[in-house]
């Protein structure tokens, strides 16, 4: 029971990146489709306003892979959660990405859904985005006008709002190597054990004298908590860190959970993070 009228969605199927960028520049409101796990849900449920769509699947040879370049990890726009979960380099060096991919949807979703799609959808509940925040990922944007690179932490400007311009496509995500000896922590608190949307999700990386923490589902976008990070880096104890966290997070009540729960769980998660990543621990 697909409740949209397919004829209202003219389709474009570019064979090359160049062609894709031409179309993106030339066709107003052109909506890219990568894995379709976001777009097709909206389409099927009648929630996608009629628009031209552009399926990127033929670009897989150019954009499909995961590779290393100059020490960084490069995740192509069409790389899926499954690709991420099973890639040896990701498994070795970026455990937060593996974990985030593992707890996203179910296998069927992981086989189609892309990390780039997860970034673009702009949901504060997106589960890989905190991991990308914590790793300091960069997003590469292409258009016929050229290329630019934006830190994923600067990608969002508000609830479901991003810096992506109408003529741009994301080509890849570039992730610098985490510091040697850094400790990684990721936890998703969802509505059930699988196929769940986050109530709170957190990713953290703790190096010798640096801390990066990123939270999902507790604000209008994925967010960093710089004061808490600073407090921890400067040696604050758990109680202080937890108190600081409460000053820079103001989650909301919604259909999935409550403000109070989100705050309390975030604080508990922070304690767990501190324990698990403690340099002596």
């Amino acid at each position: 029971m697909i409740v949209s009228n397919a004829v209202r969605y003219p389709t474009y199927v570019p064979a090359t990146v160049a062609e894709a960028l031409e179309q993106k520049a030339g066709v107003a409101n052109l909506l890219p489709i990568a894995g379709g796990t976001e777009v097709m849900v909206m389409f099927n449920e009648g929630l996608l306003a009629p628009c031209p769509v552009q399926s990127l699947h033929r670009l897989a040879p150019e954009w499909g892979g995961i590779r290393e370049a100059e020490g960084s990890l490069v995740i192509g726009a069409l790389a899926t959660y499954t690709d991420v979960r099973h890639h040896p380099v990701v498994r070795e060096r970026y455990p937060l990405l593996v974990e985030a991919a593992r707890v996203t949807g179910a296998l069927q979703i992981q086989n189609r859904g892309t990390l780039v799609g997860n970034i673009v959808n702009g949901s504060p509940a997106a589960d890989t985005v905190p991991a990308l925040f914590a790793y300091g990922a960069q997003v590469r944007l292409l258009s016929t006008r050229g290329e630019r690179t934006v830190a994923v932490t600067d990608f969002y400007t508000g609830y479901r709002k991003t810096v992506l311009r109408a003529d741009e496509l994301i080509s890849e995500i570039v992730i610098p190597p985490p510091a040697d000896g850094a400790r990684h922590y990721y936890r998703k608190v969802g509505t059930r054990a699988a196929q769940a949307i986050s109530k709170v999700v957190v990713a953290g990386v703790r190096g010798r004298d640096s801390v990066r923490l990123a939270w999902g589902s507790v604000g209008p976008t994925t967010l960093r908590t710089p004061k808490t990070e600073a407090a921890i880096a400067s040696g604050a104890d758990a109680d202080e860190a937890v108190a600081t966290l409460a000053t820079e997070m103001s989650p909301l009540d919604d259909i999935r959970s409550t403000r109070d729960y989100r705050l309390a769980v975030s604080q508990n998660l922070l304690r767990e993070f501190l324990k698990r990543t403690s340099p002596g621990g």
């Binding site: 697909i2 379709g36 097709m40 389409f43 399926s55 499954t82 069927q108 979703i109 086989n111 189609r112």
Partner: peptide
């Protein structure tokens, strides 16, 4: 690969 056919255009 296992897929949800409702989500594959």
């Amino acid at each position: 690969e296992l897929v949800m056919s409702c989500l594959v255009p």
